[in-house]
Write a protein that binds this DNA or RNA. Structure first.
Length: 768
DNA sequence: TCATTGGGCTTTTTT
DNA sequence: AGCCCAATGA
C-alpha cells in the first residue's frame, strides 16, 4: 500500500511520517525535497486527512502544478484536485476575491503588476511636483514595497520617526506622503499590487476573527516550501493560519536564501524554533543530484558564509569531472565558447539540448549567448526576462479586459483610452484626471458624468469619450453570456486593435500580431478546458483572475521541449540540468557590484552562487571574460572571487587551446565560429582591427521599396534569393525542391533560423 | 492631436 | 547599445 515509503531514505522517511505538530525540514540542495513534500501530502491523505484541509504553499505556480500531478499519480486526480496548492500570491488572491469585500475591495479587483505600480507612483511624483531624479520612481516603489512586506502601513510609518528620518536622510522626506497617496489611488482603482495580496490578507485575518477562524479550521495542515525565501508578511499569514492546530511543516534551505532584496527574511527559518519550541527538525543532507566534485565545491563556497544552520551535505555519487574554468577575451567570445562546447558535448555524449543550461547573474547577459546559439542554429529557450504577459501588445489587450471587468482600473484606462488612437489626447486626460481627483471619482465615472460637469472639453471630444465608455459598457454586458475566448475575439475586433497591429508590417509588428494571436489561442484553450470540467467557469473574469500572477515559466509550450535553457540564477532555483554553464564569473557582475558593500549582501551573492553550482548534475562550467560590453562601453573585468573560493581541488583551469587569429579575408564561415577560445592573447593594437563577430548574422540586404514586388511564384525562386516573409521577416533561400504546388524552399531567416516552407501557402516577396 | 526626434538613463535578482 | 520620455514641429 504505502510502497512510496520504500523509495525514501531514512531521513526522508521520518520527515514524511511525521504528520502532526510544527516541523522544520532543512533540505540541502538536491536532497529530494520535492519528493518529501509530495509524499508527505500523500501520506497525510492516506492517513485520513481530507485534502480540503491541506494547504501547500509553493514558490512558483509551476512547482505547485507539478507537485499536484505527482500527488495525483498516487491518490487519483479527483482527490488531488481538492488540495489547496499554489503560491502565496495566487492562493490569497483567491481568498481575497471572496472575502475582500470586508475590507472594501470589489470581488473583481484588479491586480497591478510592477509596471502598473510604477506608473502610479510616477504619476504621484509628477503631481506632487517632485524631482524625478531625487524621487526615482523605481526606488520609491521599492521602498514602499519593503514597507508593505514588513507590514508597515501608512499609519505605522507615520508613527515611526526612525523610518521617516531614514527617508529624510536619503533626501526623500516626502516618501510618506507618496506612500499614502499610492495606497489611496490603488484602493480607489479597486486594485491591489503584489504586496497588497499579502498585506491585505493579513489585514483581513486580523480584523475579522471569524474569517481567520474559518480558514484556520479549513487549513488544518499547512506546508510551506522555500521557507527561507518568505518575507515577514508571508510569515505572519502562516503564523496566523497555523495558530490553532499548529500542524505546520516548513521546508527550506538557509543556504539557498536568495531573495533578501525583495524582503525575504532568512530569520524566518533560522528562528523557527523560537516560534514553535516544540518543533521537530529534520535534516536532509544526502545529495542525489550531483557528482561528489560538485557537492564538495559547493560546500567549500558556502563555508565562507557566517550565518547558517549547521549541516553537512554529502553524496554517494561518483566524483565526476572537475569544474571547468574558462577565460575568454570578450563577452561574445564567451558566448561562442559556451555554444561550441554545448554543441560538441551534445554530439560526443549523445545528449539532448535540454540537458544544458546557461545561467547568468543579470538578464542583459543573455544577448551575447543568444547570438552565439542562434549563429549555430542551436535551439534555446529563455526563461524570465520580459515575460510574455508584460509585452506591450499583450498588456494592451489585457488592459481592455481589465477595464471591462473593473471600470475603476485607472492604469488600464490610461493605457488604452487612446489606443488605437481615438483623438483623446493629453489635454483631455489632464482635465479628466483633475476632475477625478477633485471629486474622488474614477476617471471612468467622470466621463460618464462629463455632460453635467463643465470640464471645458469640447463637444467633439466629449462624443469620442462617450463612445469609448459605451463600448466598454457594451462589452461588460456580454461578459456573462460569452466565454472568455468569444469576448476576446469581440474585443480585439471591435476596438480596432487587430487592424492597428496589422498596419505595421515590419517583422516586429508581425511578431506583435502573432503574440496577440497566441494570447487568444491560449484563451480558446482555457475555455475548452473549463467547459470540460464539471465545475468549470469559462468567463473572462475567471481567465483574468490568474493572468496577473502567471509567469513565462508557467506556460508549457510543447515546442520548448528540447532546447538549451537560458535563465538567471534566481530563476534556476529548484531546477536541475546535467550540464550547467555559469557565465560572467567576474567581480562586479557576480558578485554584483551593488552587493559587495555589506557582509549580508555579499553572503546573499554567495548563496546565489551556491544555488547556481548545485543545479548541475554531471558537469559545471564557469566562464569569465577579460572585457565586457557594459553600458555601451567596453569595460575591463577580473575573475570573480567565488572561483577561488571553490578551491583548486575541484577546478580544472585548462583553458582551451588558443585559436589562430583568422585573417580578415577568410570571411568567417558559420561552422568555424568559436570552436576554440583565445588564450590570454589580446588583439594587438598594431595589427588591423579584427572584426568581432558580435553583430548578429550578416545583415541581409535591406528591402528597397522599389524592388519589393509581390510575386506569385511560378517557379522563379532560386537558391540565393533574398526574400521577405510576412511572418518571419527577411531570409535567404538555401534550397528549392519539388515542383508545382508542392514546391518547397528551405529558407534561413534572419531571426527564426532555418525553415522549410511550402511556397503555395506562403506570402513571400523577393527582394534580392 | 499626433508623429518624430533627440536626450538621458539604465543594468540586479522577481511573485 | 537600447529604451523611455519629453520636447518639438505638422
Amino acid at each position: 500500500m504505502a510502497d512510496y515509503l520504500d523509495t525514501l531514505n531514512d531521513a526522508q522517511r521520518v520527515a514524511v511520517e511525521n504528520l502532526e505538530g510544527p516541523m522544520l525540514v532543512i533540505a540541502g540542495a538536491g536532497s529530494g525535497k520535492t519528493r518529501v513534500l509530495t509524499y508527505r501530502i500523500v501520506h497525510l491523505m492516506n492517513n485520513g486527512v481530507d485534502p480540503f484541509n491541506i494547504l501547500s504553499l509553493t514558490f512558483t505556480n509551476k512547482a505547485a502544478k507539478e507537485m499536484k500531478q505527482r500527488i495525483a499519480l498516487q491518490v487519483g486526480r479527483s482527490e488531488a484536485k481538492n488540495l489547496w496548492m499554489g503560491t502565496f500570491h495566487s492562493v490569497f488572491a483567491k481568498i481575497l476575491r471572496s472575502e475582500g469585500h470586508r475590507i472594501g475591495y470589489p470581488q473583481n479587483y484588479t491586480i497591478y503588476d510592477a509596471q502598473d505600480a510604477e506608473r502610479v507612483i510616477r504619476g504621484i511624483i509628477t503631481d506632487m511636483n517632485l524631482d524625478k531624479d531625487i524621487y526615482k520612481p523605481k526606488q520609491v516603489m521599492g521602498r514602499i514595497s519593503s514597507f508593505k512586506n514588513s507590514l508597515i502601513t501608512v499609519r505605522a510609518y507615520n508613527n515611526q520617526p526612525d523610518l521617516q528620518e531614514a527617508d529624510a536622510a536619503a533626501m526623500r522626506p516626502r516618501t510618506g506622503e507618496i506612500y499614502k497617496e499610492y495606497v489611496d489611488r490603488c484602493f480607489r482603482a479597486g486594485a491591489m499590487d503584489f504586496d497588497d495580496l499579502l498585506l491585505r490578507t493579513n489585514q483581513l485575518l486580523n480584523q475579522f476573527p471569524e474569517v481567520l477562524a474559518q480558514y484556520q479550521d479549513r487549513f488544518r495542515y499547512i506546508m510551506v516550501d522555500e521557507y527561507q525565501d518568505t518575507n515577514h508578511s508571508q510569515y505572519s499569514i502562516v503564523k496566523a493560519l497555523a495558530a490553532r492546530f499548529e500542524n505546520l511543516c516548513v521546508v527550506g534551505d538557509d543556504a539557498q536564501s536568495i531573495y533578501g532584496f525583495r524582503g525575504a527574511n532568512v530569520k524566518n527559518i533560522l528562528e523557527f524554533k523560537k516560534d514553535y519550541p516544540s518543533m521537530k527538525m529534520f535534516k536532509l543532507e544526502q545529495n542525489y543530484r550531483s557528482t561528489n566534485n560538485i557537492v564538495q565545491a559547493a560546500n567549500n563556497v558556502i563555508a565562507n558564509n557566517r550565518e547558517q544552520l549547521e549541516k553537512e551535505v554529502f553524496t554517494a555519487n561518483p566524483d565526476g569531472e572537475a569544474i571547468k574554468v574558462v577565460r575568454t577575451v570578450t563577452d561574445s567570445e564567451e558566448g561562442k565558447y559556451v555554444a561550441s562546447t554545448i554543441f560538441e558535448t551534445a554530439m560526443d555524449q549523445h545528449l539532448e539540448w535540454s540537458d544544458f543550461a546557461i545561467l547568468y547573474r543579470t538578464n542583459m547577459q543573455s544577448r551575447a549567448l543568444e547570438d552565439a546559439l542562434r549563429r549555430r542554429d542551436m535551439p534555446y529557450r529563455i526563461y524570465g526576462g520580459l515575460s510574455f504577459y508584460q509585452r506591450k501588445e499583450i498588456k494592451d489587450v489585457l488592459s481592455y479586459f481589465r477595464l471591462i471587468i473593473n471600470h475603476k482600473d485607472e492604469e488600464a484606462l490610461r493605457r488604452i483610452i487612446n489606443f488605437p488612437a481615438r483623438g483623446i489626447g493629453k489635454t483631455t486626460m489632464d482635465r479628466l484626471t483633475i476632475a477625478a481627483r477633485e471629486n474622488t471619482m474614477s476617471i471612468f465615472n467622470v466621463i460618464e458624468q462629463a455632460q453635467n460637469m463643465s470640464l471645458g472639453i469640447n463637444a467633439g471630444t466629449l462624443r469620442k469619450l462617450e463612445a469609448f465608455i459605451l463600448m466598454i459598457k457594451a462589452f461588460n454586458v456580454q461578459i456573462d453570456s460569452l466565454d472568455a475566448f468569444q469576448m476576446a475575439e469581440s474585443v480585439v475586433k471591435t476596438t480596432g486593435l487587430v487592424k492597428e497591429l496589422q498596419k505595421d508590417s515590419t517583422p516586429e509588428g508581425v511578431s506583435r500580431l502573432d503574440n496577440v494571436q497566441e494570447l487568444i489561442n491560449s484563451m480558446k484553450k482555457f475555455t475548452e478546458d473549463q467547459k470540460e470540467l464539471a465545475d468549470g467557469d469559462d468567463t473572462l473574469n475567471t481567465f483574468m483572475e490568474d493572468v496577473a500572477l502567471l509567469t513565462d515559466a508557467d506556460k508549457e509550450d510543447p515546442n520548448d521541449m528540447n532546447k538549451v535553457s537560458l535563465m538567471t540564477v534566481h530563476t534556476s532555483k529548484g531546477l536541475e540540468f546535467s550540464h550547467v554553464f555559469i557565465v560572467g564569473m567576474e567581480e562586479d557582475l557576480f558578485p554584483s557590484g551593488l552587493s559587495i558593500n555589506t557582509r549580508s549582501e555579499l553572503e546573499e551573492e554567495r548563496r546565489l552562487f551556491y544555488v547556481a553550482v548545485t543545479r548541475a548534475e554531471k558537469q559545471a562550467y564557469l566562464s569569465y571574460t577579460q572585457s565586457r560590453y557594459r553600458w555601451g562601453k567596453v569595460t575591463e573585468a577580473e575573475p570573480s572571487r567565488f572561483i577561488e573560493e571553490i578551491g583548486d581541488d575541484y577546478l580544472d583551469y585548462s583553458t582551451p587551446k588558443s585559436r589562430r587569429s583568422r585573417a580578415m579575408g577568410s570571411n568567417g564561415n558559420d561552422s568555424l565560429f568559436g570552436n576554440e577560445v583565445l588564450r590570454s592573447v589580446k588583439p594587438q593594437s598594431g595589427t588591423a582591427p579584427v572584426k568581432q563577430n558580435s553583430k548578429s548574422i550578416r545583415k541581409l540586404k535591406p528591402v528597397s521599396s522599389m524592388s519589393s514586388n509581390t510575386d506569385l511564384f511560378s517557379g522563379n525562386l532560386n537558391k540565393g534569393n533574398i526574400v521577405k516573409h510576412q511572418r518571419f521577416g527577411l531570409g535567404e533561400v538555401m534550397m528549392v525542391e519539388g515542383v508545382g504546388v508542392n514546391q518547397k524552399a528551405s529558407i534561413r531567416f534572419e531571426n527564426g533560423g532555418l525553415k522549410k516552407i511550402l511556397l503555395r501557402f506562403s506570402k513571400l516577396d523577393v527582394v534580392g
